[in-house]
Every structure is written in C-alpha cells, then in structure tokens.
Simulated assay, not measured.
Amino acid sequence: MGTIRVNNIKVFTNHGCLDEEAKIGSEYRVDIEVKANLLKSAKTDILKHTVDYVHLNKIAKEEMAIRSKLLEHVAQRIINRIFKEISMVKKATVSVAKINPPIGGNVGEVEIILSKKRKS
C-alpha cells in the first residue's frame, strides 16, 4: 500500500449558504490523499500502473466548479468521483478549506475533512 497526495489545489469559486457568497466568490484550497497499491508502478515505471495525480487534480477542479452550499457536499462529490473513476484507490481523504471565510471574525480559513474506504 502507498499514499499519493495532491496538496494545495487552489480554486476561486462560489460555495456557501449566503447569497453574497454566490455573487462574489471566495478562494478555496483542496487537498487530496489516496491510498492504493503502488508496488507495481514502483517496479514498472508506467503511468497506467499508478493513480495519476493529474486525474485527481482534474476531479477536484471540476467538482469545485459546481456550486454547493456546504463544503461537506463538494468534498463528498470529489470522493465519489475518485472511487468511480479510479478503481485502484482503496481509501480517499479530501479536505476543502475556505480561505478568509465571512464569519464575522479574524479567521484564516475553515476546513472540512472527509474520508472513505472502498468496500471490499
């Protein structure tokens, strides 16, 4: 088993419950961690034998472009697509952070983290 991380995917989009969040948008950061058997790719040096991090980045950006009221919702969509599209992933953890959230205080970011294991 091995781990692949794609960290600090930066996206500007419009998630949130407030009407003004839909209009003005915010900056977000997405981090993805997947667990998979990487022994074959370590031996063969062939891309199709691993989890392509370009694919993970594409999933994150596409799902972040679809408006959600809650960060949990968009993170779950990212996880669902990872499991649907990349069969070798055994576990995925996705964090989505809203940078400088409009919550009436000096807060750098709010972050949610979801994890899921593939059922055998």
Results as ranks from 00 to 15, higher is better:
residue 89 V to L: 05
residue 99 I to F: 03
residue 41 S to G: 14
residue 90 K to T: 06
residue 61 K to H: 08
residue 29 R to H: 04
residue 5 R to Y: 09
residue 47 L to C: 06
residue 49 H to N: 14
residue 41 S to E: 05
residue 60 A to D: 01
residue 113 I to W: 10
residue 40 K to M: 15
residue 51 V to I: 08
residue 83 F to M: 10
residue 111 E to Q: 13
residue 8 N to E: 15
residue 103 I to M: 13
residue 51 V to Q: 02
residue 13 T to K: 07
residue 52 D to N: 12
residue 48 K to I: 04
residue 99 I to V: 15
residue 98 K to T: 05
residue 11 V to W: 13
residue 106 N to R: 08
residue 52 D to K: 00
residue 116 K to G: 02
residue 74 V to Y: 05
residue 70 L to N: 01
residue 85 E to L: 09
residue 63 E to F: 02
residue 32 I to P: 04
residue 4 I to S: 01
residue 28 Y to D: 06
residue 46 I to R: 11
residue 52 D to M: 04
residue 50 T to V: 03
residue 23 K to D: 11
residue 64 M to A: 11
residue 94 V to P: 05
residue 45 D to S: 09
residue 104 G to V: 12
residue 75 A to M: 05
residue 102 P to Y: 03
residue 40 K to P: 05
residue 35 K to N: 08
residue 90 K to A: 05
residue 54 V to A: 05
residue 6 V to Q: 03
residue 75 A to S: 15
residue 20 E to K: 08
residue 107 V to P: 12
residue 40 K to F: 12
residue 102 P to S: 03
residue 62 E to V: 01
residue 32 I to L: 08
residue 78 I to D: 00
residue 47 L to K: 07
residue 43 K to E: 14
residue 15 H to W: 13
residue 91 K to R: 11
residue 24 I to S: 05
residue 23 K to G: 06
residue 47 L to E: 09
residue 89 V to K: 01
residue 34 V to D: 04
residue 54 V to F: 00
residue 21 E to H: 06
residue 13 T to Y: 09
residue 35 K to W: 10
residue 86 I to T: 10
residue 41 S to P: 09
residue 53 Y to H: 02
residue 34 V to G: 06
residue 93 T to E: 15
residue 108 G to A: 08
residue 51 V to Y: 04
residue 63 E to T: 00
residue 16 G to K: 08
residue 29 R to Y: 04
residue 66 I to G: 06
residue 84 K to G: 11
residue 49 H to Q: 07
residue 41 S to W: 10
residue 13 T to W: 06
residue 37 N to T: 10
residue 89 V to R: 00
residue 52 D to L: 02
residue 58 K to H: 07
residue 80 N to L: 09
residue 57 N to I: 00
residue 3 T to A: 06
residue 54 V to G: 05
residue 24 I to N: 01
residue 58 K to E: 03
residue 4 I to D: 01
residue 112 I to M: 04
residue 81 R to E: 10
residue 93 T to R: 15
residue 81 R to Q: 09
residue 65 A to S: 15
residue 75 A to T: 04
residue 5 R to A: 14
residue 3 T to N: 06
residue 38 L to F: 14
residue 117 K to F: 13
residue 104 G to F: 08
residue 90 K to R: 04
residue 119 K to M: 09
residue 75 A to D: 04
residue 105 G to W: 13
residue 13 T to C: 15
residue 70 L to R: 02
residue 108 G to T: 03
residue 14 N to T: 14
residue 33 E to S: 15
residue 24 I to L: 14
residue 1 M to K: 02
residue 40 K to D: 13
residue 71 L to T: 11
residue 25 G to P: 10
residue 45 D to G: 06
residue 89 V to F: 09
residue 31 D to K: 03
residue 23 K to I: 13
residue 32 I to H: 01
